[in-house]
Simulated assay, not measured.
Amino acid sequence: MSLNGTLKALSDPIRRNILTMLKGKKMIAGDIAEELGISPASLSYHLNLLKKNDLVIESKEKNYVYYELNTTLFDELIMWLKQF
């Protein structure tokens, strides 16, 4: 886990909104962009940062790409934060 990258990814409100939307469910990019009211290009940028920092996992099912939280990383982050 790259703590600097993770914290940078979490610093943006749009990325935090994406993570909140993915809590407990998988979603396709089009649905995420529509709900947030942002362009597909903007969403792609944010999703790439979240994937790069292992906050989001991508999986393909038939013709769709689904995004979901990587809860393993959140467990590690919580353990790190608990030391304070």
Score class of each variant (00 low, 15 high):
43 L>R: 00
78 I>S: 10
80 W>C: 04
62 K>S: 06
47 L>M: 14
60 K>I: 12
72 T>L: 13
46 H>G: 03
17 N>S: 13
9 A>I: 09
57 I>A: 09
75 D>K: 07
23 K>D: 15
32 I>A: 05
61 E>D: 07
48 N>K: 15
26 K>Y: 09
75 D>P: 01
63 N>I: 07
63 N>Y: 11
70 N>S: 10
12 D>N: 14
75 D>N: 00
57 I>Q: 11
43 L>G: 02
43 L>K: 00
16 R>V: 13
53 N>Q: 14
57 I>N: 13
2 S>Q: 08
58 E>I: 04
26 K>R: 14
17 N>H: 05
39 S>I: 04
55 L>E: 10
25 K>R: 15
44 S>P: 00
59 S>Y: 01
71 T>M: 06
61 E>R: 00
82 K>C: 05
57 I>L: 15
61 E>A: 11
80 W>I: 06
18 I>P: 04
8 K>A: 14
64 Y>T: 06
82 K>S: 15
43 L>I: 05
20 T>P: 01
32 I>C: 12
16 R>W: 03
40 P>K: 04
64 Y>S: 05
74 F>G: 05
77 L>D: 00
63 N>Q: 05
23 K>A: 13
82 K>T: 10
62 K>G: 02
84 F>Q: 06
4 N>E: 15
9 A>P: 02
13 P>V: 02
81 L>Q: 09
28 I>Q: 15
74 F>K: 04
16 R>C: 09
79 M>G: 02
62 K>I: 10
80 W>P: 00
11 S>M: 06
69 L>H: 04
70 N>K: 05
27 M>R: 03
36 L>R: 01
6 T>L: 15
39 S>F: 05
23 K>V: 09
50 L>C: 02
20 T>R: 02
5 G>M: 01
15 R>W: 06
35 E>C: 01
13 P>A: 01
84 F>M: 10
32 I>Q: 10
36 L>S: 03
37 G>W: 08
73 L>T: 15
35 E>Y: 04
62 K>W: 11
62 K>D: 11
17 N>G: 01
46 H>A: 06
